[in-house]
Design a protein around this nucleic acid. Structure first.
Lengths: 209, 209
DNA sequence: TCGGAGGATCAGGAATTTCCCGATGGCGGC
DNA sequence: GCCGCCATCGGGAAATTCCTGATCCTCCGA
């Protein structure tokens, strides 16, 4: 008998595609959800072996759901789907109790292997993110995970479109100090341009689009 | 015999799911592409009946590809996949020669109907966007400074975090020209910093967070 | 057919910002 | 007390943005 799983993705079209794919791989799709909250309900009622969660769902996203499911249904293995291969997302996901981290840029075989792997109790990371995680451990300053309060504050103001000088004025510090914070947080996030910084800020909820 | 189509989506996982779905609906998937440029090449070589393009691809996105394909392969019907149901996107897509506009939030049946519809020479819009289009015709707001295709292209690349030089290299034009486009589009949008530009690009669906 | 409007292309140079180096002082933990 | 981390700044080189202006092209209407 096949592995039972529930599938959560806000795009019906994508979800149906994945469902077809997973069924043809021999899995049993016990239920589908369009957002994180629905996913949590579904997992509680269906009690599947695995929950496959898209991270990029609106409102209550895949990681929110993962965090809650890891607490209330620790027996259910969690596999997340995402397009982001940056190190900070991976560690964030692992902190949320996720056992499988699969990139959408990878082939379906990857998802199949992830599901089978987590059922055996393994942690599965898509090729390409394993490197990011390794790098995080090898990098001497991997304490760099969390931004300081000041850095997050500066990040938000940058993402809101304020100039370095304006930020300095608002925080009543030197523009040089703002530059220093920006430089530091960019280094921590391994992001080296403003545009990516803004996208990160939006994704991480520091500001809105 | 079935309708022949090519499929373009940057997420292999999603693409495979869609492929399985479309095949089980009786279509022939003649080729797959991971980005807009590849899609254009593939359509030229395979000459399918329909090209199904995800709009949200990095670098050279689905609309860029649509614009080019509408010019060089007008016989091939274009269906785009997107998550955005706002009016401006729909009209933008229609301007690019798109014949089918399918929301990812809709069921697979919708995509199937769209493909069959455009093959009969119809224009197919997902339920939910038809209303948006109607509204667009009722609102006499065409006076707005619309971005040119080139400007939108540059906007996307900026929002994706590429440097001016990198954009210039990719588009095979001078960095000065890229600066010129940026300056022009910033003036049109009345936006004067990169961060706000990125937020606008995300809001308007030119790129994703 | 002619001429204008607007888009795409580019350059020079001034102004601004980023980036990389280093430095100081405070504060909490060991 | 010492060490690590954070917040604070500065100098100077490098890169980028901003402003002005110019050429070439296509399309479109008079």
């Amino acid at each position: 008998m096949g592995i039972r799983l529930v599938l959560a993705d806000d795009h019906v079209l994508v979800r149906q595609g994945l469902k077809t794919l997973l069924q043809s791989a021999g899995f049993v799709v016990a239920g589908e959800a369009a957002d994180g909250r629905e996913a949590v309900r579904l997992v509680r009622s269906e009690n599947p072996d695995v929950a496959v969660l898209d991270i990029g769902m609106p409102q209550f996203n895949g990681l929110n759901a993962a965090l809650e499911l890891a607490r209330i249904c620790p027996r259910v293995k969690l596999v997340v789907l995402t397009q982001h291969d940056e190190q900070q997302y991976v560690t964030e996901a692992l902190r949320c109790g996720v056992k499988g981290y699969v990139l959408k840029s990878q082939a379906a075989r990857d998802l199949v292997q992830a599901i089978e792997g987590v059922c055996r109790g393994e942690v599965y990371l898509s090729p390409g993110v394993a490197g990011a995680v390794a790098k995080a451990y090898l990098t001497p300053q991997h304490s760099a995970d969390a931004l300081s309060v000041r850095e997050r504050q500066v990040l938000q103001l940058i993402a809101e479109g304020h100039s370095t000088k304006a930020i300095a004025a608002r925080l009543a510090i030197s523009a040089k100090t703002v530059e220093s914070h920006r430089s530091k947080l960019m280094q921590k996030l391994d992001i080296h341009d403003t545009a990516s910084l803004v996208r990160y800020a939006i994704r991480s909820g520091v500001t809105q689009a």
